[in-house]
């Protein structure tokens, strides 16, 4: 093995241990390949030559942690990203949800909120939003704040609009937001249905029973053991016949929890608790 590479591996493990002990964020079971890359990108931004130097800085200037968290987590999201996922929700899951007098959804790893509001809009279009509560959770406080504010750059609207249409959208998106000063603010009626909170799939437990969990492009950042933990939480939060949706490259195929779920819409990664 290349000795330089293994020194780096050791430094990264020590950094993650330090972060866990000092800040209680647990990145120790994340996928190494992408974590390594993001740490490498962060180093020069913190004026550090080595990961060990970054660790020292973090321990002695704890305020830097929040800035580092912006590098360790990836805040990339879009409204109705992969429209067919949301179309499948509308066509193959909403009919079932109509039979419940009240509904709870959990969007785990909600980032800046785009996915959350995509569900809120569909549920509103389908006449179910009134009886719905959406839990939206993430570990990044800055992202959660933006999600709660629900304001997006107007330049992004036309892409959102197109995705919404492909997802079977019934009204123009403009019906759900007001634009001012270069920002599009989602309407209060949507935001009022969402509870945002800090929750880690790595260290926290289940907080409610929900009929639907959507967790997209979060599990890809976890190594197998942590993925198993997270899917274990979803399994516990969902009653029999509840739905779980994943990102387009994520699958339960290699999960020990596979047998607790059946494929509901295979190509769109919707599973159903059995």
């Amino acid at each position: 093995m290349n000795p330089a590479a293994s020194a780096l591996d050791i430094e990264i493990r020590l950094l993650l241990e330090a972060i866990y002990l000092r800040f209680h964020h647990d990145f120790r079971s994340y996928s190494m390949a992408s974590l390594k890359r993001r740490i490498a990108v962060a180093l020069p931004r913190f004026g550090c030559e080595t990961v060990s130097a970054l660790q020292a800085k973090l321990l002695h200037e704890p305020d830097t942690f929040n800035a580092l968290l912006q590098y360790l987590t990836v805040q990339v999201s879009d409204m109705f990203r992969d429209p067919s996922y949301f179309r499948a929700f509308r066509e193959k899951i909403v009919p079932d949800l109509r039979t419940y007098p009240s509904l709870k959804l959990w969007v785990a790893g909600c980032s800046t909120g785009e996915e959350v509001y995509s569900f809120a809009i569909i549920l509103d279009e389908e006449g179910l939003l009134d009886r719905t509560l959406i839990y939206a959770t993430d570990i990044n406080p800055e992202a959660l704040q933006k999600a709660e504010a629900g304001v997006y750059a107007v330049e992004r609207l036309s892409a959102f609009e197109e995705n919404h249409r492909l997802a079977g959208g019934k009204r123009p998106l403009a019906a759900y937001c007001t634009t001012a000063y270069g920002g599009a603010a989602l309407s209060r009626s949507l935001r009022a249905k969402v509870v945002f909170s800090d929750h880690s799939l790595a260290t926290d437990n289940v907080f409610a029973e929900v009929q639907v969990v959507s967790c997209r492009n979060v599990l890809i950042y976890f190594a197998r053991a942590l993925q198993d933990r997270a899917v274990g939480l979803f399994k516990e939060a969902l009653p029999r016949r509840g739905f779980l949706g994943l990102g387009s490259k994520e699958t339960l195929q290699f999960s020990p929890h596979m047998h607790a779920f059946e494929e509901h819409v295979r190509d769109d990664r919707w599973y159903r608790r059995c």
Binding site: S31, A33, S34, V74, I220, Y221, R224, K249
Partner: peptide, 11 residues
């Protein structure tokens, strides 16, 4: 990934 599996990111 080091365990000879594929990894993904949306970085």
């Amino acid at each position: 990934e080091s365990d000879f599996t594929f990894g993904f990111s949306v970085d």
